[in-house]
Amino acid sequence: MFEARLVQSAILKKVLEAIKDLLTEATFDCSDSGIQLQAMDNAHVSLVSLNLRSDGFDKYRCDRNLSMGMNLGNMTKIMKCAGAEDTVTMKAQDNADVVAFMFESKNQEKVSDYEMKLMNLDQEHLGIPETDYSCIVKMPSQEFARICRDLSQFGESMAISCTKEGVKFSSAGDIGSANIKLAQTANVDAEEEAVVIEMQEPVSLTFACRYLNSFTKATPLSAQVQLSMSADVPLVVEYKIGELGHIRYYLAPKIED
Protein backbone atom coordinates (compact mmCIF):
# COMPACT_ATOMS: atom_id res chain seq x y z
CA MET A 1 0.00 0.00 0.00
CA PHE A 2 1.25 3.45 -1.00
CA GLU A 3 -0.29 6.68 0.21
CA ALA A 4 1.10 10.21 0.07
CA ARG A 5 -0.80 13.29 1.13
CA LEU A 6 0.04 16.94 0.53
CA VAL A 7 -2.11 19.69 2.04
CA GLN A 8 -1.00 22.00 -0.75
CA SER A 9 -1.83 20.38 -4.08
CA ALA A 10 -0.28 23.49 -5.67
CA ILE A 11 3.18 22.06 -4.95
CA LEU A 12 2.45 18.92 -6.98
CA LYS A 13 0.99 21.05 -9.78
CA LYS A 14 4.19 23.12 -9.86
CA VAL A 15 6.39 20.00 -9.84
CA LEU A 16 4.49 18.68 -12.83
CA GLU A 17 4.84 22.00 -14.67
CA ALA A 18 8.56 21.83 -13.97
CA ILE A 19 9.06 18.45 -15.65
CA LYS A 20 6.46 18.13 -18.40
CA ASP A 21 8.34 20.37 -20.82
CA LEU A 22 11.22 17.88 -20.94
CA LEU A 23 9.46 14.57 -20.35
CA THR A 24 6.31 13.05 -21.80
CA GLU A 25 6.31 10.11 -19.43
CA ALA A 26 8.26 9.17 -16.33
CA THR A 27 8.47 6.61 -13.56
CA PHE A 28 7.85 7.71 -9.99
CA ASP A 29 9.83 5.42 -7.71
CA CYS A 30 8.20 5.26 -4.30
CA SER A 31 9.94 3.87 -1.24
CA ASP A 32 9.96 4.36 2.50
CA SER A 33 12.25 7.37 2.09
CA GLY A 34 10.03 9.18 -0.40
CA ILE A 35 9.34 9.63 -4.10
CA GLN A 36 12.12 9.80 -6.66
CA LEU A 37 12.09 10.35 -10.38
CA GLN A 38 15.05 10.30 -12.74
CA ALA A 39 14.58 10.60 -16.47
CA MET A 40 16.33 11.98 -19.53
CA ASP A 41 14.70 13.95 -22.32
CA ASN A 42 14.29 12.20 -25.68
CA ALA A 43 17.61 13.50 -26.99
CA HIS A 44 19.50 12.35 -23.85
CA VAL A 45 20.97 15.83 -23.50
CA SER A 46 19.29 16.72 -20.20
CA LEU A 47 18.12 14.83 -17.16
CA VAL A 48 15.51 15.58 -14.52
CA SER A 49 16.11 14.31 -11.00
CA LEU A 50 13.26 14.84 -8.56
CA ASN A 51 13.44 13.94 -4.89
CA LEU A 52 10.45 14.33 -2.55
CA ARG A 53 11.26 13.17 0.99
CA SER A 54 8.66 11.16 2.86
CA ASP A 55 8.95 13.40 5.94
CA GLY A 56 8.00 16.43 3.82
CA PHE A 57 4.54 14.99 3.13
CA ASP A 58 1.64 15.57 5.50
CA LYS A 59 1.04 11.85 5.49
CA TYR A 60 3.22 9.19 3.88
CA ARG A 61 3.07 5.43 3.80
CA CYS A 62 4.89 3.03 1.49
CA ASP A 63 4.93 -0.60 2.59
CA ARG A 64 6.68 -1.94 -0.49
CA ASN A 65 8.85 -0.24 -3.10
CA LEU A 66 6.67 0.74 -6.01
CA SER A 67 7.49 2.08 -9.49
CA MET A 68 4.67 3.97 -11.10
CA GLY A 69 5.07 4.81 -14.79
CA MET A 70 2.92 7.78 -15.65
CA ASN A 71 2.02 9.69 -18.77
CA LEU A 72 2.69 13.26 -17.66
CA GLY A 73 0.15 14.77 -20.06
CA ASN A 74 -2.56 12.64 -18.50
CA MET A 75 -1.32 13.40 -14.99
CA THR A 76 -1.49 17.11 -15.86
CA LYS A 77 -5.12 16.70 -16.98
CA ILE A 78 -5.96 15.19 -13.61
CA MET A 79 -3.97 17.69 -11.55
CA LYS A 80 -5.79 20.53 -13.36
CA CYS A 81 -8.96 19.19 -11.72
CA ALA A 82 -7.55 20.02 -8.28
CA GLY A 83 -8.36 23.42 -6.80
CA ALA A 84 -5.35 25.49 -5.77
CA GLU A 85 -6.34 25.17 -2.11
CA ASP A 86 -7.20 21.47 -2.26
CA THR A 87 -5.39 18.74 -0.41
CA VAL A 88 -4.12 15.94 -2.66
CA THR A 89 -3.67 12.29 -1.74
CA MET A 90 -2.03 9.80 -4.11
CA LYS A 91 -2.77 6.15 -3.45
CA ALA A 92 -1.87 2.82 -5.02
CA GLN A 93 -2.13 -0.79 -4.01
CA ASP A 94 0.95 -3.03 -4.24
CA ASN A 95 1.42 -4.20 -7.84
CA ALA A 96 -1.43 -1.99 -8.95
CA ASP A 97 -1.95 -0.89 -12.53
CA VAL A 98 -3.70 2.31 -11.50
CA VAL A 99 -2.92 5.23 -9.23
CA ALA A 100 -5.67 7.15 -7.44
CA PHE A 101 -5.71 10.89 -6.86
CA MET A 102 -8.08 12.28 -4.25
CA PHE A 103 -8.66 16.02 -3.99
CA GLU A 104 -10.33 17.44 -0.91
CA SER A 105 -11.45 21.04 -0.54
CA LYS A 106 -11.09 22.87 2.77
CA ASN A 107 -13.59 21.44 5.30
CA GLN A 108 -13.97 18.45 2.94
CA GLU A 109 -17.11 19.88 1.39
CA LYS A 110 -16.01 18.56 -1.99
CA VAL A 111 -14.11 15.31 -2.47
CA SER A 112 -13.02 14.26 -5.98
CA ASP A 113 -11.55 10.89 -6.90
CA TYR A 114 -9.61 10.22 -10.08
CA GLU A 115 -7.88 7.07 -11.23
CA MET A 116 -5.15 6.98 -13.82
CA LYS A 117 -3.79 3.95 -15.62
CA LEU A 118 -0.10 3.27 -14.99
CA MET A 119 2.39 2.34 -17.70
CA ASN A 120 5.39 0.05 -17.83
CA LEU A 121 8.26 2.24 -18.93
CA ASP A 122 11.75 1.21 -19.88
CA GLN A 123 13.91 2.97 -17.38
CA GLU A 124 17.44 4.00 -18.10
CA HIS A 125 18.98 5.29 -14.88
CA LEU A 126 22.25 7.16 -14.99
CA GLY A 127 24.77 6.83 -12.18
CA ILE A 128 25.75 10.38 -11.28
CA PRO A 129 28.80 10.52 -9.02
CA GLU A 130 29.21 13.00 -6.19
CA THR A 131 31.11 15.90 -7.75
CA ASP A 132 33.02 18.82 -6.25
CA TYR A 133 32.09 21.63 -8.58
CA SER A 134 34.53 24.43 -9.42
CA CYS A 135 31.81 27.09 -9.28
CA ILE A 136 28.51 27.21 -7.43
CA VAL A 137 26.27 30.19 -8.13
CA LYS A 138 23.18 30.90 -6.04
CA MET A 139 20.89 33.55 -7.45
CA PRO A 140 17.23 34.59 -7.54
CA SER A 141 15.33 32.07 -9.67
CA GLN A 142 13.31 34.81 -11.39
CA GLU A 143 16.51 36.57 -12.41
CA PHE A 144 17.85 33.36 -13.93
CA ALA A 145 14.59 32.80 -15.83
CA ARG A 146 14.69 36.35 -17.12
CA ILE A 147 18.30 36.01 -18.31
CA CYS A 148 17.59 32.72 -20.10
CA ARG A 149 14.55 34.23 -21.81
CA ASP A 150 16.36 37.41 -22.82
CA LEU A 151 19.48 35.69 -24.18
CA SER A 152 17.46 33.10 -26.13
CA GLN A 153 16.52 35.91 -28.49
CA PHE A 154 20.11 36.19 -29.67
CA GLY A 155 21.16 32.64 -30.28
CA GLU A 156 20.53 28.96 -29.65
CA SER A 157 23.39 28.76 -27.16
CA MET A 158 24.50 30.73 -24.17
CA ALA A 159 27.87 30.81 -22.47
CA ILE A 160 28.00 30.92 -18.68
CA SER A 161 31.33 32.16 -17.33
CA CYS A 162 32.04 32.31 -13.66
CA THR A 163 34.90 34.05 -11.91
CA LYS A 164 35.20 35.25 -8.35
CA GLU A 165 34.08 38.72 -9.49
CA GLY A 166 30.81 37.46 -10.80
CA VAL A 167 28.94 35.38 -13.33
CA LYS A 168 28.53 36.36 -16.98
CA PHE A 169 25.87 35.07 -19.35
CA SER A 170 26.42 35.72 -23.04
CA SER A 171 24.88 34.87 -26.36
CA ALA A 172 25.46 35.86 -29.97
CA GLY A 173 23.68 35.35 -33.27
CA ASP A 174 22.44 36.97 -36.47
CA ILE A 175 20.97 40.07 -34.82
CA GLY A 176 23.95 40.77 -32.58
CA SER A 177 25.18 39.83 -29.18
CA ALA A 178 24.18 40.06 -25.53
CA ASN A 179 26.13 40.02 -22.28
CA ILE A 180 24.70 40.05 -18.78
CA LYS A 181 27.05 40.28 -15.80
CA LEU A 182 25.91 39.65 -12.27
CA ALA A 183 28.20 40.61 -9.42
CA GLN A 184 28.09 38.90 -6.09
CA THR A 185 25.78 40.94 -3.86
CA ALA A 186 27.57 42.74 -1.04
CA ASN A 187 24.70 42.75 1.41
CA VAL A 188 21.01 42.21 0.87
CA ASP A 189 18.09 42.27 3.26
CA ALA A 190 16.35 39.23 1.82
CA GLU A 191 18.42 36.07 1.45
CA GLU A 192 16.52 34.99 -1.65
CA GLU A 193 17.57 38.16 -3.49
CA ALA A 194 21.27 37.44 -3.04
CA VAL A 195 23.76 36.41 -5.69
CA VAL A 196 26.39 34.24 -4.01
CA ILE A 197 29.37 32.70 -5.78
CA GLU A 198 31.56 29.96 -4.37
CA MET A 199 34.49 29.53 -6.73
CA GLN A 200 37.46 27.19 -6.63
CA GLU A 201 38.46 27.73 -10.26
CA PRO A 202 36.97 29.91 -13.00
CA VAL A 203 34.73 28.04 -15.46
CA SER A 204 33.24 28.88 -18.81
CA LEU A 205 30.77 26.53 -20.49
CA THR A 206 28.25 26.76 -23.32
CA PHE A 207 24.71 25.37 -23.15
CA ALA A 208 21.62 25.17 -25.34
CA CYS A 209 19.14 27.91 -24.39
CA ARG A 210 16.18 25.66 -25.17
CA TYR A 211 16.93 23.33 -22.26
CA LEU A 212 17.79 26.13 -19.84
CA ASN A 213 14.42 27.72 -20.62
CA SER A 214 12.71 24.40 -19.90
CA PHE A 215 14.47 24.21 -16.53
CA THR A 216 13.15 27.65 -15.59
CA LYS A 217 9.63 26.18 -15.59
CA ALA A 218 10.58 25.23 -12.00
CA THR A 219 10.86 28.91 -11.00
CA PRO A 220 7.53 28.95 -9.08
CA LEU A 221 8.91 26.22 -6.80
CA SER A 222 11.71 28.27 -5.29
CA ALA A 223 12.90 31.86 -4.92
CA GLN A 224 16.52 30.77 -5.40
CA VAL A 225 18.26 28.60 -7.96
CA GLN A 226 21.71 27.03 -7.70
CA LEU A 227 23.98 26.50 -10.71
CA SER A 228 26.89 24.08 -10.26
CA MET A 229 29.61 23.99 -12.90
CA SER A 230 32.96 22.39 -13.55
CA ALA A 231 35.00 22.27 -16.75
CA ASP A 232 33.83 19.49 -19.08
CA VAL A 233 30.98 18.14 -16.98
CA PRO A 234 27.24 18.72 -17.20
CA LEU A 235 25.72 21.78 -15.53
CA VAL A 236 23.44 21.15 -12.54
CA VAL A 237 20.52 23.52 -12.01
CA GLU A 238 18.83 22.95 -8.67
CA TYR A 239 15.59 24.29 -7.20
CA LYS A 240 14.70 23.46 -3.60
CA ILE A 241 11.08 22.49 -2.98
CA GLY A 242 10.62 23.92 0.52
CA GLU A 243 11.05 21.25 3.18
CA LEU A 244 9.87 18.59 0.73
CA GLY A 245 12.95 18.05 -1.41
CA HIS A 246 14.45 19.34 -4.64
CA ILE A 247 14.41 19.16 -8.41
CA ARG A 248 17.73 19.01 -10.22
CA TYR A 249 18.35 19.32 -13.92
CA TYR A 250 21.56 18.11 -15.56
CA LEU A 251 22.57 19.51 -18.93
CA ALA A 252 25.43 18.34 -21.15
CA PRO A 253 27.47 21.23 -22.54
CA LYS A 254 28.06 22.18 -26.14
CA ILE A 255 31.65 22.12 -27.38
CA GLU A 256 33.32 23.85 -30.26
CA ASP A 257 35.35 21.54 -32.47
Binding site: E124, H125, L126, G127, P129, A252, K254, E256
Partner: peptide
Protein backbone atom coordinates in the same frame (compact mmCIF):
# COMPACT_ATOMS: atom_id res chain seq x y z
CA UNK B 1 31.23 23.65 -35.53
CA UNK B 2 29.45 23.47 -32.20
CA UNK B 3 28.50 19.99 -31.01
CA UNK B 4 25.83 19.24 -28.44
CA UNK B 5 27.15 16.52 -26.14
CA UNK B 6 24.95 13.88 -24.53
CA UNK B 7 24.77 12.89 -20.89
CA UNK B 8 25.86 9.32 -21.57
CA UNK B 9 29.25 10.78 -22.59
CA UNK B 10 29.68 11.66 -18.89
CA UNK B 11 27.58 9.27 -16.84
CA UNK B 12 27.30 5.50 -16.88
CA UNK B 13 23.94 3.81 -17.35
CA UNK B 14 23.27 2.26 -13.93
Amino acid sequence: IVTQLRLCQYYIVA
